[in-house]
Every structure is written in C-alpha cells, then in structure tokens.
C-alpha cells in the first residue's frame, strides 16, 4: 500500500500526520510526505529550501517536523520506517522536485519526504501518479472552501482528478461507523480493501448505503450491495445496509458525518459523478463539515 500525504503549514496537517501514522502503524504502508512550494519557480526550489536562506518556514523544514511527528508514533525497535535519524540533505530529483534525504535508517518500508514547486493540486496529482499511490490523504478546514496555503479548492480539485482514493481529513475523530455510498455497480477491489483497512483501524461498523434515483434503487446497485454484504458477512464483519434518496444525499451526508466517516464510491458509471458533476463533487467535499473519503 502506498500513501501520499499532502501537507501544508496549517494546523489540520498535524492531525493528518497523526492519522496517517496510525494507518501506517497497522498497514506498514510506503508513505510519502509531500509539501508544495507554490511561490517559487521549479528552478529556484532547491535554493529556496535551504535552511540558510529560508529558515524554519521553508516547506522542507516544515516537512522535517512532520516527519519527526510521524516517526514519533512508532517505537524505536518496532518501526517499519527504521531508526529516528535526523538531519537531511536536499537532493534534487528533477527540476522542481526535491527530496529530503536522511542518513541510513535501515527501514523495512519507505518513508519518503519531498517537496515540489508549482501549482499545489497539479503537483500533488503528479506525485500520486508517479508513486502509484493507492491513497492520497489531505487535510483542510471544515466547512470552508478548502483553502490550502492560500489557494482555494485544492481538495476539490484533487478529489475530482485523482485516479486513486482520496481521504479529505477535516477533523480528528474516531468514527463509529463508515458509511459507504454506492450508486453504481463498478466497485473496485482496491476500494473495498481500503475500507477494510479503515474498518480495522477504527474498529468501526460498516454501512453500505445504496443511492436511489427517482425510480428507486437500480437493480444493479441492489445486486452490488448484496455482493458487498456477502463479502463482509463471510468475513464475520458487521455490515449494515440502507437506502438514501439521491436528492437528499447532501443533507444525509451532513447528518451522517456528525459521528461517522462518509465514503463515496465514485466511478465512471457513478450517478454521483453526474449529480455532483465535477464541480459539485468538489463543492460537496470542500463544504462538508466532516472528513470525506472518496473511493476509486
């Protein structure tokens, strides 16, 4: 499993790091901590991140503190990410991409820290593609337009355009249930596996929510829900089912998200993709008060 963690200097990134550390503690995933320097050109990135010129405010320096926090979650002996070494060198991977390279850590799994220069959403998506991420985790403030380092709607843009699942983290909470909304029958194995990891992480129940249109629940959605339910029943995992009218999905999500984690299966066949269109989906994610998981 490969997790890309997009971080900025806002406080929500602190609990994004904590959440990913917990998830990585279970899954021993390869983790990439990524920061994006939006105010410098790719050619100037390496120089701009030097501690001598930029000091503690450089994205690289901030990423270094996040790395410390991440590794702090693990004991010295049990960490799949090796010893807590400090002091990094900035090594340019290519123009506009700089790696923070630490002394030999003897790690079983990779913890990569890197900084990119450019447009935040574009760079995050490019990194996700490069590392073949299974999940992008990104934080933002609840109920706002997802201002991320001064740029609006970064999360919405990532959610709309990512090829993998995206977890938009808005608050630190332990959901008692994961509500997975489904309106089509193409559900990837990877998305089910990701839910399984989150169910395990949170010790949460699972609720499969079928989204109905004006004519009711489509038979293919009904069948898919049945097969997902079968999958969980055969693994002794408690899974509930429910139906929601697509038109009231927004308010239902707001209601469910108070205590639960809302996840949505998006796909080419998804009616959610249509009812939210790309803009509306982004808006739903950015305006939600709670964390949202978009499954692909």
């Amino acid at each position: 499993m490969r997790i890309l963690v997009a971080l900025d200097k806002n406080p929500y990134s602190d609990y994004v790091v904590r959440l990913v550390a917990e998830l990585a503690g279970n899954t021993w995933a390869h983790v990439t901590l990524l920061g994006v320097e939006t105010h410098v050109s790719p050619g100037e990135l390496l120089d701009s991140q030097s501690a001598k010129t930029a000091g503690e405010n450089a994205v690289a320096a901030v990423l270094d503190t996040y790395r410390e926090a991440f590794l702090g979650f693990f004991g010295e002996t049990d960490s799949p990410y090796g010893r807590h070494t400090s002091g990094y060198k900035l090594i340019q991977e290519k123009k506009g991409v700089v790696n923070l390279v630490y002394p030999e850590q003897h790690e079983r799994k990779n913890l990569t820290v890197k900084c990119r220069a450019g447009n935040a959403s574009r760079e995050i998506l490019a990194e996700a593609e490069q590392i073949e991420a299974d999940l992008i985790v990104i934080g933002c403030d609840p109920g706002t337009d997802c201002k991320w380092e001064g740029h609006a709607d970064i999360c919405g843009k990532i959610v709309k355009n990512a090829n993998c699942s995206v977890f938009v983290v808005k608050e630190e909470k332990k959901p008692r249930m994961i509500d997975c909304c489904l309106d089509h029958d193409t559900v990837s194995q990877a998305s089910i596996e990701l839910i399984n990891q989150l169910v395990t992480l949170y010790h949460a129940d699972l609720e499969i929510i079928g989204v109905a249109d004006a004519k009711g629940l489509k038979s293919e959605v009904d069948r898919r829900m049945a097969s997902i339910l079968d999958y969980y029943v055969s693994r002794n995992i408690k899974a509930w089912v429910k139906v929601v009218d697509g038109l009231s999905l927004n308010s239902i999500i707001a209601q469910a998200a108070e205590k639960n984690l809302v996840a949505m299966w998006m796909g080419k066949e998804s009616f959610l993709d249509k009812i939210f269109s790309k803009q509306r989906l982004g808006k739903l994610v950015t305006s939600a008060e709670s964390s949202v998981l978009i499954l692909r």
């Binding site: 490969r2 799949p80 990701l194 990891q197």
Partner: peptide, 12 residues
C-alpha cells in the same frame, strides 16, 4: 520476508 497491506499495485 515482507508484510504487505491491501490494496497494493501489482508493481509493489
């Protein structure tokens, strides 16, 4: 030898 959590890409 190694511990791999799902989901993973075939490359991994």
């Amino acid at each position: 030898f190694d511990f791999l959590a799902k989901p993973f890409k075939l490359g991994e």
